[in-house]
């Protein structure tokens, strides 16, 4: 497993190198290139390619064949003369020109929006004030499952961001050496915590799936924009926002997990394009979750008075319940959420 991983890396590095060599050689080759006799050999290819490329006979066929490696036979020996695949080019374009360039901005933008929202609207207070009476909301094991996921998620988010963006964000400021050290550390951490994430995801799912299925009442929530811009919204144990977050975590988590496992054990797939797709989906899924997670953390802490109690104490204030989960309040207490609004 270990060896395959490294051979994959070498393979990708080599592809890139070869690609550059080929790009240099191609214009010359059009006029007067003779295929080097031993170009099939990977080791010699680097050294002899360009120098011999200045030979005498033009042979576009050679270069076509040279780049004609079959992406679906990653670990099979390539036929004579075929050295590399070219799908890597598109993959590299997506990775360099889109993912590395723009994706990192998503969380930053979300944080910016949240800051603006906070400054303009301020935190959502419990309008009736705290009643001092509480209702049980989450059991201890549910809370532990939540924080376990949050912890693992944060570790993976930080290390993943270093792996993805270190080259463009860290290296220019702290230098290549520092980036290399950080990336090595982040890589090992990320690989070790990845499998723990799968466990955390299953645990979270089991503990929170009840009450998180979509219902008709959620439509009203959507029309009223969740009450974030005023107005009262009804909801049962979880509102539409929470349900959406839950399913984002679960479904996004599954995508990240599956693609992560593929990258951790590249021997599982034959076609290199699966690996390329995996890196892209993995990054997209992870960055999307991270971005939304900031919104979740905002509502869970400074954004809404009384929310954090449910995860730190397992109990919420009755008035919090009446205002944010009125139907749940009625289900649990058997009382109406409208009456006795006295603080």
């Amino acid at each position: 497993m270990h060896n395959q991983f490294y051979s994959l890396r070498n393979f990708l590095k080599l592809s890139v190198l070869m690609l550059m060599l080929a790009a240099f050689a191609a214009p010359v080759a059009a006029q007067s290139v003779r295929p080097p006799g031993n170009a099939v050999n990977l080791d010699d290819g680097i050294e002899d390619g360009p120098s011999n490329a200045l030979g005498d006979v033009s042979d576009t066929e050679f270069w076509d064949n040279f780049r004609g490696g079959n992406p679906s036979e990653l670990f099979a020996p390539a036929p004579e003369g075929q050295v590399m695949t070219t799908t890597g080019q598109q993959w590299r374009m997506i990775r360099e020109k889109f993912i590395r360039k723009y994706l990192g901005w998503a969380p930053v933008i979300v944080i910016g929006l949240l800051a603006v929202f906070y400054l303009v609207r301020g935190p959502m207070k419990i309008t009736a004030g705290r009643s001092g009476k509480t209702l049980p909301r989450f059991t201890l094991s549910a809370r532990v499952a939540h924080w376990f996921m949050a912890g693992v998620f944060i570790i993976l988010g930080l290390t993943g961001m270093i792996i993805l963006l270190g080259r463009v964000v860290i290296a220019p400021y702290l230098g290549l050496e520092a980036n290399s050290v950080l990336t090595s550390a982040a890589m090992q951490g990320h690989n070790l915590f990845g499998p723990i994430f799968i466990f955390a995801l299953i645990w979270l799912f089991i503990k929170f799936v009840r009450g998180n299925f979509f219902q008709w009442i959620d439509l009203k929530w959507i029309f009223k924009l969740g009450g974030f811009f005023g107005g009262h919204v009804s909801s049962r144990q979880f509102n539409f926002g929470e349900k959406t977050w839950f399913w984002m975590v679960i479904l996004g988590g599954i995508v990240i997990s599956v693609t992560g496992v593929i990258m951790l054990f590249p021997g599982l797939v034959e076609d290199v394009r699966w690996l390329q797709l995996s890196t892209i989906l993995h990054a997209l899924g992870a960055v999307a979750l991270i971005a939304v997670a900031f919104g979740h953390i905002y509502v869970g802490t400074i954004g809404m008075e009384g929310s954090i109690d449910s995860m730190l104490k397992g109990e919420v204030d009755e008035n919090w319940a009446k205002e944010h989960h009125d139907l749940w309040y009625e289900e649990v207490t058997g009382k109406s959420a409208k009456e006795e609004e006295t603080p």
């Binding site: 924080w147 912890g151 693992v152 730190l312």
Partner: peptide
Amino acid sequence: FSGLITLWVRRISD
């Protein structure tokens, strides 16, 4: 790691 994280998050959430 899982065990240690579990023990600590239990410490802060109860």
